[in-house]
Structures are given as structure tokens and as C-alpha cells.
Amino acid sequence: MSLISVKDIRKTYRVDRERVVALERINLEIQPEEVCCILGTSGSGKSTLLNILAGLEKPTKGTVKIGGQTVSNFSEKQWALFRQKNIGFIFQSYNLLPTLTAVENVAIPLVFKGVDKTERTKRAIHMLKLVNLGDRLFHKPTQMSGGQQQRVGIARAFVSRPQIIFADEPTGNLDSKTSREVMEIMVSLAKRYRETLIVVTHDNEIAKYADRIITIHDGNVKSDEPNLSILQTIHSEKQEENA
């Protein structure tokens, strides 16, 4: 059974008197443990799709099911509790709380979950070490580089072990070298914890890290195919191993 199932999603906005169609009709099935990339140009509707999947926006029509639950008609409170348990978020502009240290920022989702302070600090430190920030535990966001901040953001998304991680243009503010580092960390953590990772981007380079690439164009799914390059890589790796 697929983890996320999107059925006939339509989203329209009203701008002044005109109706703008963001998503025309989307049907998608996403499997557990999939690393999947939603690729599209600016204005294609890819961010809207992500927002609907994460409950930040409501679809005009259609249903979204996650783990068998119909989430598209959840109330705000239901969504908050659902996100607490099942969803991690990585943003383009990191969205760390500027007054908190790295550890405190990573521990925030656990605070909302009601986890004990000693326990959540322990888990936050562990996560920060996994993203190679063991030496930046008590730095404030302003004392860190963009790449470091995004790694704090990744640690925060994974700390509560959600089923699904949404990443919205996670490398949008980073140079290509740091982007690669960040993507590698994200993908490896998702694989390690057997979590589903959905990355929204406009960058073809980033898409290469995914198992599956869904291209959105003008509010429709234009193509949905497994990432051949990555399959080839895996294939060649296996061959190397065998050899």
C-alpha cells in the first residue's frame, strides 16, 4: 500500500477577480521509504502541491490520504498533532529560531511533543553529531554559515523520527558544493531511518539524488519516472561489488 495517495487534487486561487489555477488535476502515489523529487519551474505549482501534502493549504478539490488516513479535511489542530508525529520539514530559508542555540532549535519539535528536557537535549545532540555539527552545538543561527544552518534544519526535521520529510527547495540559498553536501546528508539520513523524503526543487542537479522524479508543469504531472541515473549508479555499484 502506498504511503501517500493523492487523488484528483485541484487548487485554484482567487487573485482580485481572476481565478488562477495552481494545480489542475494531480494524481500521485508515493511509496514508503521512497526518495522522491518534485521538479518544476517557478509557478509550476510544485510548492502548492507540497503545501497541500503537508497540510499548510487546503485543496479546492480532491483528497489526500497519508497512511490510510484522509488528511485533506483535517482541522488545524488535527494537522498540528499529525505533523508533530509524522512530518518533518526542511525549508529553503532554514527557518531556525534566531534566539535559540543549535541544540534548542533541533529540540523544538520534541518540545511540542512534550518530551522531557534531558531526553530531547540528548537526542538533539545526537542528531547534530550525525549532520557533522558536533562542534557547533551551542551556536546561535547567526553564528553559522548557510550550509551549517541548513544542516541544523535537517537535524531538526529528522529528530522526532517522522515517517515523511518534506524539503522545500532545501538548497535554494546554497552554493553548488554545499548543496551537494546537504543533499547527501538528507538522502543518507532518510535511507538510514527508512523514511520517505519528498524534495521540491527547480534544480535538475538536485533531482539526481532522488529515486523518482515527478515533473510538474502548469499544474499537471508532466512526467513521473524512476531516476535512471541513480539506478544506473546503483547498478554499477552492485556490479563493482560483485566484481
Binding site: 499548510l56 498540528a80 508533530q84 512530518i87 527557518n95 529560531l97 523544538i108 511540542f112 511533543k113
Partner: peptide, 16 residues
Amino acid sequence: TREIGIMKVLGCVVGN
């Protein structure tokens, strides 16, 4: 505003 938004996205219940 932004901080409140982040808290909401990360699963903070509005009552809190």
C-alpha cells in the same frame, strides 16, 4: 510572526 509560523509548521498546537 515568522517564529509563530515556524512553530505551527513544526507541530505546535494553536492552544499552546
